[in-house]
Amino acid sequence: MSTAETVDNSRRDFLYIATGAVGVTGTAMAVWPFIDQMNPDASQKALSSIEVDIAPIEVGQAITVVWRGKPVFIRHRTEEDIKLAVETDVAELRDPQTDAERAQKPEWLIMIGICTHLGCVPLGQKPGDVKGDYHGWFCPCHGSHYDSAGRIRKGPAPRNLDLPGYKFLSDTLVKIG
């Protein structure tokens, strides 16, 4: 093989590799819209925060609001609820969190009402509901018990009920998300 031919061949190889690389890069980029279309769309993202008026909730009552398609529990806790939650020995918990870490204002507990085990909605919102062994919530699917601060006490769930980001805009208005 002559030198000229070798140069010619390596130049060709470079061309082939360059073209292949450009082609593969472009294809990869073109795939992105087809994946990204499955992500939450603009109208879903716009719903990412809601404002809730908590004035009508009496002490001891709880309401469930929908945020991002999920139930959010808002409970106006009684003195007893708070006392139970504060006096619990944090060190004994599966997912140790103090009550102050769970609620910005002690009388208001705001959590995502989805069991951290496999996604069911625990009971305990309505007055007649089973509240579990710890005066909080009880998940009927696989028997997880949550206390009055929404912490996991018994059953298969690995974590306490998740907290959404929220902010008190005033004493009676809370922004979730």
Binding site: R12, Y16, T19, V22, G23, G26
Partner: peptide
């Protein structure tokens, strides 16, 4: 992008 790639493909085809 498509212009560059089609030019490259033309060169490949010619080669």
């Amino acid at each position: 992008y498509l212009f560059i790639l089609s030019m490259l493909m033309y060169m490949v085809k010619r080669a």
